[in-house]
Amino acid sequence: MNWKTLIAATALGLVVSTPALAAREILNVSYDPTRELYEQFNKEFVKHWKAETGEPLTVRQSHGGAGKQTRAVIDGLEADVVTLALAYDIDAISEKTGKLPKDWQKRLPHNSAPYTSTIVFLVRKGNPKGLHDWDDLIKPGVEVITPNPKTSGGARWNYLAAWAFAQDKYGSEEKAKDYITKLFKQVPVLDSGARGSTTTFVQRGIGDVLLAWENEALLAINELGKGDFEIVVPSVSILAEPPVTLVDKNAQKHGTTDVAKAYLEYLYTPVGQEIAAKNYYRPTDPKIAKKYADAFPDVNLITVDDVFGGWQKAQKTHFNDGGVFDQIYKPSE
């Protein structure tokens, strides 16, 4: 480390009127599938911030299941920004702690989601069971791998995508429920988290199809077994918008509001969008999206708001205790 630069940087940091003397740090509390994305993005942002202001910065990162991470922030984990799987989770933080305003989702473009994703099928090489759409999954003898919607955020997306397909295809909620019941009868293992399911499918060799985030499926193909798996895009899927936001009161307390805001805004810049695309998230910037169009097949996407009337409602009807998901399973005699 060059001492002169360090001293200069510190001096500059003081001049730029940072309240803290020590190098500032911000904490980004996120969920599981964004690990690789933020590892890269943080490095870029720290470089950018240094170039822009001369201030050295540390970005701390915390990952885990989406629900668990949300609870940690509610119970006092002092995140400056949260980058979670669902608007529903951030709503819960706002509602239970008052640390950010209720209308947080309006503060950044695209419903505060800088990148999007969707649910696809990961099948074994050559697609031996010939699975092309959601209704193929309930054919006899097909084993479907998905995590448990009660404990995994990703699994809730899987479930809702399947439901939206069935409701559209079969025409009623009753029939959609039938379909979902049949679908989960084909599930031999309900892992507690999305990455657990990926491991079950890829490492343990269990199941014919894995329902997964597109970014997870692409990651699995590229990192875990090139040539062993294929992605199948169903006729309809769901638009997942993982939102990001500032946790106002925590950032105020740490004196990091400016940098935390800049951090989130940087996600929307071409640099941030490129990093998202390289980590298999669909960029929202049309230019970058065009550049990476080959990587992301066209899917007919529905949204939770359109089909389910929002996450609050979907959560209540389907996943809370006594909801539709609980009715699928009956006590064994």
């Binding site: 299941g65 448990n148 009660k150 404990t151 507690s192």
Partner: peptide, 15 residues
């Protein structure tokens, strides 16, 4: 314990 965990996922601390 897994049931307990899934209750926590719904912010149902009491349950």
């Amino acid at each position: 314990p897994l049931l307990i965990y899934s209750k926590l996922e719904q912010y149902d601390y009491a349950g």
